[in-house]
Amino acid sequence: MAEEGKFKVTIDGIPVEVAPGTTILNAARLIGGDIVPPAMCYYSKLEGSGGKCRTCLVKVSKGSEKDPRPMPKLVASCRTTVMDGMEVSNITSDEVLEARKGVVEMLLINHPLDCPVCDQAGECKLQDLSYEHGTEQTRFAFERRTFERVDIGDKIQLHMNRCILCYRCVYVADQLTTKREHGVLSRGDYSEIATFIEAALDNDFIGNVIDVCPVGALTDKTFRFKNRVWFTKPVDAHRDCPTCSGNVTLWYKGDDVLRVTGRKDEYNEVDEFICNTCRFDTKRTQDWILEAPTKVDNESVITANHYLNFNPPPVIKNSSELQAANEEQLARTERLK
């Protein structure tokens, strides 16, 4: 029996007690570790997000204590709330792993596989996901859908080719700014994130679309291609900001602050959204009060250059072209060994 007012759920055999209304995904996050389903579209700080990418599908093998019937289909764990006595399988279910592999394959068929020239590489959830669940070879033998790069305003660039239509950036504009000026146009695989007549997105909090974007579709133009993330060093810092909390992560290369982002947790979600002034226009060390190096997951590629040896992603290893493109970085990596 669960504690008064709490529901007991079991995920991959591990029990946890949570408040009614908690989603399976958040219950899994309370347990932590490998059994947490990957979430490409859900973002706990954005209301209404989730349910779209389908990477977080899990199997409910027992509905609840009262109604033990299993759910007939796999469910999106980010949008399904727990019931008392529910039993969920994630990584212990072949059906789930098989379906997830299918979803990852779908996400990748139109996504460029050029991580080495993408600014998001190293902090891209899709990259992580495809190493974990993807297949070695693509079965998609057709031309990928392509779009032109678009500058939306002078600080943000949109590269639709990389977008996985998670809608997070749409929710950011809806929920954090005074007026949403971009959205999804068209249907199906013609859908694109777009602004009306490419109206510049300028709004105090719009820069957060960069932080929530799980892939390299929305990137910071003030940082683009200045460096690979794994060669920069994240440091937590704060300042007295009239607009936002001022709690940020500064990304250093030597003594220079190359970019400023929100502070992200292990699920790549920011703790607090930050304003554009902090993000784009406050890049001198003296503007900030430094706290400590950001805690980064040991396995993250971001740690590679500082805490562990950097291991270039297999995509680079396997292609001479990409090796050439990353010559400098690879040479540096060699030196570090």
């Binding site: 349910g51 990418c53 389908r54 990477t55 996400l107 068929i109 139109n110 996985i164 199906g188």
Partner: peptide
């Protein structure tokens, strides 16, 4: 006719 919200339908129908 796919709305394009969820990945399996958006990408799978075209494929």
């Amino acid at each position: 006719e796919s709305c394009g919200q969820c990945s399996p339908c958006r990408e799978g129908t075209g494929w």
